[in-house]
Write a protein that binds this DNA or RNA. Structure first.
Lengths: 190, 190
DNA sequence: GGGCAATCTTGACGATGACAAGATTCTGTC
DNA sequence: GACAGAATCTTGTCATCGTCAAGATTGCCC
């Protein structure tokens, strides 16, 4: 119970980031406030500033965390591009707070060195799937990489925005699999 | 000059929406503030409330505007799905403020009847392209529609987030055309 | 011309972000 | 064990914001 705690929380940075995820998942990034996070963590309103500097600093840390979690998820998915794509969608839906912040660079310090490094790590993980495809299918071009990334990112974003029509089922990964499969097996042509 | 103006601006609603687009394009939706928009329009801080009720009300109006502009852009693109896809990307990049707000329903009143109607209009325009494809290519399924929407939406979102690698050129429409073409002509298989 | 709606202005309050000054706790060194 | 300094907080303040209320002004319709 924090009432017995003095001036040293001990794990405040992690608790604040977890609280931020909770608030963003409930109400979106616009509803995030440092004072609210401080209350939820049981500390004074200025305590978060020591760990993050300011609101943008906290969101920078959240984005770094997100890019690293994404890299891990993509690595774990193996090298089949369809599996990597599904893992991307699963990540986006399972970590909607991180995902929302990651792709809104105006919310954080996009030129922060940690962000750049984390982005590079997830970028490499993303391209591992494309590299495997290029190996299996000579002739694969950069456009194919862009198409693969675009389709899974688009699907994830539309799912999270609640823009997709009903009938796709409850499993975003499975729905994404059916949709992204189209990239490789187009409808019968004329 | 507003200094000769009394209590009746005459066109305040439109001016506030235009100012909102400007601010969001410059600094993102998080930077939007009603007081700042009022200052830019040369009125008092409470004037916007008469037209929009509150901040979410203004963003609702902006989203409605966006869905309608999208519907118009898609109708103007004709029925070739590739052209419709490119028009979608051109719309997103050319109206980045509207696009950002449209796909963040936590910023506005998603259950507002005007929003629902506007969404339906742009949804119909989007599906006109898919319907044309289905006519030209029997066997087209809902997955194809989702794939088409996902790929252009994903490309647009990634482009706007500055996440795509350099080398795609300066024309988002042309870059999107090359990428979305992959949906219909996949790389040579094994 | 008058009444009412529309469209503003002024003022106030609570919440926020950011900053400053200071208090407490922890850690490392001697 | 003591001390110094870093780390980690607390308290307070200020400017800005969103929202609400009360009131002033203007436009429109009968």
């Amino acid at each position: 119970m924090t009432s017995t705690r003095g001036y040293h929380h001990g794990d405040l940075r992690r608790v604040l980031l977890a609280a931020a995820v909770e608030v963003i998942e409930e109400s979106g990034s616009a509803a995030l406030s440092l004072r609210d996070l401080a209350r939820r963590a049981g500390v004074s309103h200025a305590a978060p500033a020591h760990h993050f500097g300011d609101r943008a600093g906290l969101l920078t840390a959240l984005a770094v965390q997100g890019f690293d979690l994404l890299a891990e998820a993509l690595h774990a998915a193996g090298t089949d591009l369809l599996d990597v794509g599904v893992a991307y969608v699963d990540f986006a839906v399972g970590h909607r707070a991180h995902f929302e912040v990651m792709f809104h660079p105006d919310l954080y310090r996009a030129d922060d060195p940690e962000i750049r490094a984390a982005r590079a790590r997830s970028g490499r993980a993303l391209h591992a799937g494309v590299a495997a495809l290029a190996q299996a299918r000579p002739g694969t071009r950069q456009d194919d990489a862009m198409a693969a990334w675009s389709i899974v990112h688009g699907f994830a974003t539309l799912w999270l925005a609640g823009a997709l029509p009903a009938g796709l089922g409850d499993d975003p990964g499975e729905a994404a699999r059916a949709v992204t499969r189209r990239l490789f097996t187009p409808p019968p042509g004329p």
